[in-house]
Design a protein around this nucleic acid. Structure first.
Lengths: 208, 208
DNA sequence: GTCTAATTTGAGTGTTCACTCAAGAGAAGC
DNA sequence: GCTTCTCTTGAGTGAACACTCAAATTAGAC
């Protein structure tokens, strides 16, 4: 019942710590992991709106009471998964200014193709989730701006001759276009993400 | 109660005809229009999943019984609106092979910026709707392929030197990227769609 | 082995959903 | 002005939803 934690949500949650957690919380932490895994795959399979408490609990092998012992609400579990998906798009924000444009695009392509579940969550949020949910919308837009900024720095490094506005525009076009490619990949898994991402990358640093 | 029509759905629906419809159906046809308008704006405002019968009826100023006198189900009303949105993206399919790439992109930008409601419906469907609903998914993918084909013809006309595979690839990149730009515009109405669409257009016919 | 606190159970709450239908209101057609 | 068919009303159905809670179970701490 006691949680030794909580970052923003109100009640009863337990964080994974750097230090080993006390033994007596082990069962709860394992259940928490199973619930988060169930939530992630369910969002990926059915989308945000198809994800229900019953669905989560069935997949995780628990009953609703157990879910609510660990999470304050359905939304809290979903937000955890969404945070995870958003962070996974941009795995190392510390690197600001040191990654090449190729590194950034390659990391994104790898994320999309290797972590299909999270990619589906991410693109689903960007459209349907962000419209009605203010918290999600803020998060998505802030993340998008951060991503554009990183791409802009990388573009500027390769094309120092361009003015700031042009660099910004190219970064915005590139990031938006990559999202479009991701969107299509979600609908058609045969779509060659790497091919199209490569073309977009070239356009972003092309003459003209 | 009698419908002098029906295209695919099972029961009770009335089509707008080329000829003037009998007077005695006038009230029903007007109500049908109000319901479709309410459905369109509701999907645009709240997305597919936020659209309820109660919401539609409140906006249209009718009661559920009236709705079900004209539509067989909630899904049928939604499908009508979605069909409308998809058709609006590509207003004149007859023109295959005669529009320039600039015409196609310009028409798309105009659609997005002038018919925000339908654009929101369209992009919402492409992500959340198409995942669980087979009928919608087929429709979206078929429409996407048709659109890529038209763009490919236009690209080929401007760059006859490119081989077929390269033309196809450029068309796919362009259409997907335009969807990504639309996606971002839906979240941020200040986004300059025309600017980015113009840049993508240039990339599609650039050397290299 | 006992104590104690964390965890799980599972029936139950109130709300909202899509959808129904018998009955009444309305207006076109004669 | 009466008939007839269309349209609207509005209470009501059952299912699914997120969420609750007192009681039972389990397992770490000592």
């Amino acid at each position: 019942m006691i949680g030794f934690d909580s970052k923003g949500g109100e009640p009863a949650r337990r964080e994974r710590l750097a230090t080993v957690p006390p033994m007596r919380y082990r069962a709860g932490l394992e259940t928490q992991d199973r619930i988060l895994h169930a939530t992630r795959t369910l969002i990926a399979d059915l989308g945000l709106e198809g994800t229900t408490i019953k669905g989560i609990c069935d997949r995780a092998g628990v009953l609703p009471g157990s879910f609510y012992n660990l999470f304050a609400s359905k939304e809290q579990a979903i937000l955890s998964v969404v945070r995870e998906a958003i962070d996974a798009v941009d795995p190392d924000p510390q690197h600001l200014g040191t990654d090449s444009l190729g590194d950034l695009v390659e990391a994104y392509v790898r994320f999309i193709t290797e972590q299909g579940d999270l990619a589906r969550v991410y693109i689903g949020i960007a459209v349907s989730g962000a419209r009605n949910n203010t918290e999600l919308r803020r998060r998505v837009i802030r993340h998008h701006e951060g991503r554009v900024a990183r791409f802009a720095v990388a573009i500027r490094r390769e094309r120092a001759d361009l003015d700031a506005a042009e660099v910004q525009r190219r970064a915005e076009t590139l990031v938006s276009s990559l999202n479009g490619v991701t969107l299509h990949y979600v609908l058609d898994p045969g779509f060659d993400v790497a091919l199209h991402a490569g073309a977009l990358l070239e356009s972003a640093v092309a003459e003209g």
